[in-house]
C-alpha cells in the first residue's frame, strides 16, 4: 500500500525539536520523524509511548532462568543422576553459572529478535526511505498527505517554512 508523504528536512536537531513542538501546538499529526542519530527530548516532544521492549527482555530472561535451572534439576535428579566429585545430585551452587548464562542469552536474543520484528527490520529487508541524507546530517519530519486531504497541504507547507525547514518535498512510498 503506497503512501504519499510530504516531508521537510532540517539542518539541525534543535530546529527539529522546535518544529515538532510547533507541530504539536498547531495540532498537525506527524506521520514520523527521521534522524541520523537519537535526539534527546524527541520522544517526549512527539508524545511517543515508552518502549516496552525491556519487559520482553525480562520475560525472556525469566524463561532462560527457568529452562536452565529446572532443566538441570530434572537431568541431575530424575533423568540420569550421577555422583560427580561427591557433590549432591541437586548441586545448586554448581547450577548457578549456567543458569545465569542462559538467562542472559535468552534475554539478549529474545529482545534483539523482538526489536527487529516490531520495527519491521531484518537481514535483507528494504524499507523505502525518504532521503539518503537523513542517515547523514538531515533531520526529517514527514506528514501523510492522506491525513490532510480536506484541509489541504498549504498548512503544512506554511509550517515547514515557518519552522526553518531547508527543503520540502513530496514522495510516494
Amino acid at each position: 500500500m503506497s503512501k504519499e508523504v510530504l516531508y521537510g528536512l532540517y539542518n539541525d536537531e534543535e530546529d527539529l525539536l522546535h518544529a515538532v513542538h510547533a507541530a504539536h501546538d498547531a495540532h498537525l499529526d506527524i506521520m514520523d520523524v527521521y534522524t541520523p542519530f537519537p535526539v534527546h527530548g524527541l520522544d517526549d516532544a512527539m508524545g511517543l509511548d515508552e518502549s516496552r521492549l525491556h519487559i520482553g527482555g525480562f520475560i525472556f530472561g525469566a524463561l532462560g532462568l527457568l529452562t536452565a535451572f529446572l532443566g538441570m534439576t530434572w537431568i541431575f535428579t530424575a533423568d540420569w543422576p550421577v555422583i560427580y566429585g561427591g557433590k549432591p545430585y541437586w548441586s545448586v551452587p554448581a547450577f548457578i553459572p549456567i543458569t545465569f548464562e542462559l538467562t542472559v542469552l535468552f534475554a539478549g536474543i529474545g529482545m534483539t529478535v523482538t526489536f527487529y520484528i516490531i520495527c519491521g527490520m531484518g537481514p535483507g529487508v528494504i524499507n523505502k526511505t525518504l532521503d539518503d541524507r537523513i542517515t547523514d546530517d538531515k533531520f526529517c519530519i514527514a506528514f501523510d498527505t492522506h491525513d490532510f486531504e480536506e484541509t489541504g497541504l498549504d498548512k503544512i507547507k506554511e509550517f515547514f517554512s515557518s519552522t526553518g525547514a531547508s527543503e520540502v518535498n513530496i514522495k510516494t512510498l
Binding site: T35, F37, P38, G122
Partner: peptide, 23 residues
C-alpha cells in the same frame, strides 16, 4: 536490515542498547 532512522526505532534502539548493556 532496512533501517530508516525513524524516531520510534531510535527509541527502541536506545532501550535495546541500554538493556543489552545492562545484561
Amino acid at each position: 536490515f532496512g533501517w530508516t532512522g525513524s524516531a520510534k526505532h531510535w527509541q527502541r534502539w536506545e532501550s535495546l542498547s541500554l538493556v543489552l548493556a545492562g545484561i
